[in-house]
Design a protein around this nucleic acid. Structure first.
Lengths: 231, 231
DNA sequence: AAAATAGTGTCTATAAGACACTATCAT
DNA sequence: ATGATAGTGTCTTATAGACACTATTTT
């Protein structure tokens, strides 16, 4: 008697989000505390399963971004796929990870699903003592490394800033993500030399302390030329 | 009465392979002609569905590499995920694309599943007149762009070469993938200056025409420092 | 010898980092 | 005035490309 015809297996598809922002000049990531097994109580990336068979994957990522983090209109890009057969003890789950970058914002909105989410310095999140669910440590490492690399030759840094920003605020982004100190004077000329990276936003000014700085906004160019080289 | 509890949807997972090599100093890609609908008769990337629920995704890519292309032991790395809801008319299929780079090889082995596969210049594959299945044109573009970018700061170029190679062979890789002409003398010094990129393979020699060249093999370093900059 | 490719040396234009200096604010 | 940050100018050094030149082979 003939075998029943071979059918490809069906698997579960999840999205996970590495959401980065800057707080107090340090790189932070948004993590949620898991309320159910497995990894109950451990920290995890915001994310979840595809809602239905026809949902677009990036749309699912934006939905989770909104539901779990209360964020919209932030930079979002595919990061990688994580599909090890045993990465989820409940069964075969393939996850598409996204990298999101948000400007400086207040705490995750309490009273929403985002209430369980909190910003944590990336350094702490990756410290040996921090218990992270699934393979999320690896995903965070990959996401941070992606951000570091993209700062070099794309305008990603502006996604960490508000609509308008000063050059020294932009410098803080580079210093926090790369974890280095940069010379403000050379940084100033370098960032100005990358055509279309940033454009002046009127002769407006601002006053933290010291001479007021000119305000800029993200320019039309997303690929930096020349690139910002890491020391 | 209560709704039945929500269950996440299950989807089909495929792998697709962008397999690049060098033939006659031009960048080629391995394509198969589809023998079944949809896109019957169109060219497509080698690939297929996950075999069973427990198969590792990269293992599936290597399996297809062997079954459809007769290749083993070649460079293989994840490229991206393609999951548009309507990318496959048969239903929801999410594909994980891989980039493979093979050294110069004879034709795909006839008499195997690879018989239907053939090497084609990338330029021809991407020409407007070429009919490609699914979203494979986009995947090829992404794969080639990935190769171009990785040549700059990794040792990927050596994956296009045999075990040992001359510096001018390595230069041909860069010229074909980047589609530029490079000065052999500056290339020579530059490639030598990237520590650990290539190492001499004895004082051996070789004879195409002109002075014999020294032979090298891939060095231990995979991240180039300084990088090979594109003109 | 001529042609061809391998390999070395050197010059020049440019870019990157160090850092002195000026400008404009708060106190 | 002092301190702080913004912004400009300049010098030095490292690097990328142009290209002359030597070396070693085949025909």
């Amino acid at each position: 008697m003939p075998d029943s015809p071979w059918q490809p297996p069906r698997i579960l598809l999840a999205v996970d989000l590495v959401i980065l922002t800057l707080r107090e000049a340090r790189l932070h990531i948004l993590l949620v505390e898991r309320g159910i097994a497995p990894f109950l109580g451990a920290l995890a990336l915001p994310g979840g399963f595809l809602h239905d068979e026809h949902e677009d994957i990036e749309a699912a990522a934006r939905r989770e971004l909104s539901e779990e983090a209360g964020l919209s209109d932030v930079h979002l890009e595919p990061l990688a796929v994580y599909g090890e057969p045993d990465r989820d003890p409940r069964g075969r789950v393939v996850s598409v990870a996204y990298l999101a970058v948000a400007p400086r914002l207040p705490e995750p909105v309490a009273g929403t699903d985002a209430a369980g989410a909190s910003w944590m310095p990336v350094e702490d999140a990756l410290a040996p003592g921090t218990e992270l669910a699934f393979d999320h440590r690896r995903i965070i490492v990959d996401g941070v490394e992606r951000a570091r690399a993209k700062l070099e030759h794309t305008a990603l840094a502006t996604a960490f800033c508000a609509e308008t920003f000063t050059i020294s605020e932009l410098q803080q982004v580079y210093e926090a993500v790369w974890d280095v100190r940069l010379d403000p004077r050379n940084f100033y000329r370098k960032v100005q030399g990358a055509h279309g990276f940033i454009v002046a936003d009127g002769p407006m000014r601002k006053t933290p302390n010291g001479r007021p700085a000119r305000l800029f906004r993200a320019g039309p160019v997303h690929v930096l030329n020349p690139p910002m080289t890491r020391p």
